[in-house]
């Protein structure tokens, strides 16, 4: 009840199985896009965190359709495919979900700048956490600059991802 009184709208019922799978499918697609070789010099290291964008979007709009188990499995899959120590992405995405879910009512039905500001703060935290985690795993102080560039690129790509996810959501699920 607390959420309703705070103005969180009731999520629309979705019967179409394709639409119900949309959050999981798009997050999985974001994972695959993240590891695509773009043949652009320097891009691999700075690849935006597309999966984080999808998790952020769906946790705000349809957390019911992107359950923690799906996030965990997608995260582990991404780690295994990317050659990253398994569990790292899963951990980061689950923590992101936990944080966003707590603040969800601040973002639902708000203007895009609010959403973007929230994502900026989340990305900053996530990238710092990732950097610390990798420094601990590898036992060396990793150059922080690439992490900063990656964060900036992730934040600047978010409007496009948000627009595309929002459009797909509206098309398949109706208003949302």
């Amino acid at each position: 009840m607390a959420l309703r009184s705070a103005g969180t709208p009731a999520p629309q019922r979705v019967d179409n199985p394709v639409a119900r799978l949309l959050p999981i499918a798009t997050t999985l697609l974001a994972t695959v896009i993240s590891i695509q070789p773009a043949h652009i010099p320097g891009y691999a290291a700075l690849t935006p965190a597309f999966t984080l964008m999808a998790v952020y979007h769906w946790t705000i709009y349809r957390p019911d359709l992107l359950p923690p188990l799906a996030i965990f499995l997608i995260g582990v899959t991404q780690d295994l495919l990317a050659g990253v120590p398994p569990g790292v992405t899963a951990l980061v995405l689950l923590l992101a979900r936990a944080i966003v879910l707590r603040q969800r009512r601040q973002f639902v039905n708000r203007l895009f700048p609010f959403l973007w500001t929230g994502f900026t703060m989340l990305t900053g935290g996530v990238m710092l956490f990732l950097w610390t985690l990798h420094c601990l795993i590898d036992g060396v102080l990793i150059d922080f600059r690439e992490t900063v560039f990656r964060a900036v690129l992730t934040i600047s790509m978010f409007p496009i991802a948000s627009f595309l996810l929002g459009r797909t959501q509206r098309t398949l699920m109706g208003a949302g």
Partner: peptide, 14 residues
């Protein structure tokens, strides 16, 4: 080459 690591912490190709 069909995939790379996509991140700042690993340099590998699939």
């Amino acid at each position: 080459v069909i995939a790379n690591s996509g991140g700042a912490y690993v340099r590998s190709l699939m």
